[in-house]
Design a binder for these strands. Structure first.
Lengths: 202, 202
DNA sequence: CACAAAGTAAACTTTCGAGTGTAATTTAGC
DNA sequence: GCTAAATTACACTCGAAAGTTTACTTTGTG
């Protein structure tokens, strides 16, 4: 028995998943090799293939894994008792932390590199899944009279789009480091400011 | 002599460039093969290699080619005599048409797929180059008293970011069709609206 | 301790794409 | 028409990466 918990096979599987996340993060789907992942996980190639029958199966498992981590985002329910700006700021911080997390970055890099080579895959991704939370929040704030009447989906996309512009795409495209706390604050503030300028009820 | 103009070797080269743009657009950098490009250009593989000594050289040539087309964007100078909203709308349309053009999409897809596998490449891309025009425009509008005092780079990034959120990333990530004229108008209008809500002088 | 399940190492097959060598053919300026 | 440069077909090398086979070892539970 080793120090880490679980049966040997569970530990091996976890090591593989971890290594795969790192490899996909670093190299993208195509440039990440199964040999490399096996090595990184300190696992024989055969063991890798015993757990995951192909690279694609491994990738799909990783996507599921990361999605499940990802959907456990703290729910942000609208609260009519609290300041709208404060709540929006909190929501923005949650989203930013989400986008810059290792897991999401790994998922995005791997997913993107795949989607670029196999566009059909991208067409089947539900891009509203992550938007819905914000959309619903917006509708509730509207119903409570805090925000003006406007298309909730557009507003949600604008909000998320602004955050991604500063805290997601630069990391993906230019390999920038994740924003530090000061930078995150500036991003959130400028986004909230813009959003409220447009949508705050008079 | 064939119908198309130019020396044979020039025509061949043009066919190769055209085929490469299409291939990189369709498959991304890695999944596009030199055999495929040669076939698509109706050129022997050897001729392809006589013109471009490697895939990387071909890619770089394409990047240069597209960049040169791309930098001929109609300059949008700020004109203190005209309505700010009208000018901003025009600027937005120019940018949207730019982002959704075949050339830019091809460049982006190829560039992205490369950057995902070789992050160093991405780090060397000057991401402010396309921003500068808008930034300068914004500063001039500020100086003329049409826009409030605020960080020009942030504002420019927000503006471009909003447009890309609706008219660029969905095509890249989800393989969506380019927005039609009605959709483009809606994108431009909502972006201009948001931008002016935040930055228009009182 | 026995033994079944799981892991290991390393050589192996296949496939695919980049890039080359060559001999024969076509093009176009003189 | 002659000639040099460009193009072509195609067979080739080379390397990388997916996935497999085999013979052997480790692990841990009853």
């Amino acid at each position: 028995m080793q120090s880490a918990g679980g049966r040997l096979t569970d530990r091996k599987r976890a090591a593989i998943v971890q290594a795969a996340v790192e490899a996909f993060h670093t190299y993208g789907y195509y440039a990440a090799s199964m040999d490399g992942i096996a090595k990184r996980a300190s696992v024989s190639k055969r063991t890798l293939y015993n757990h995951f029958s192909s690279k694609e199966a491994l990738f799909d498992a990783i996507v599921d894994e990361l999605y499940s981590r990802v959907e456990q985002l703290p729910a942000c329910e609208f609260d009519p008792e609290r300041e709208i700006r404060e709540q929006l700021t909190e929501l923005a911080h949650t989203e930013v932390n989400f986008f810059i997390s290792e897991d999401v970055q790994a998922l995005a890099r791997a997913g993107l590199s795949r989607v670029l080579a196999e566009p059909e895959v991208g067409r089947q991704v539900d891009h509203r899944r992550l938007l819905r939370r914000v959309e619903i929040w917006f509708q509730e704030a509207q119903a409570a009279g805090f925000l003006i009447d406007a298309d909730a989906e557009t507003a949600a996309l604008q909000f998320i789009g602004l955050l991604r512009t500063f805290a997601f795409w630069p990391m993906i495209v230019h390999g920038e480091a994740p924003p530090n706390e000061r930078e995150r604050k500036a991003i959130v503030t400028s986004t909230v400011e813009m959003f409220l300028s447009r949508y705050a009820a008079r």
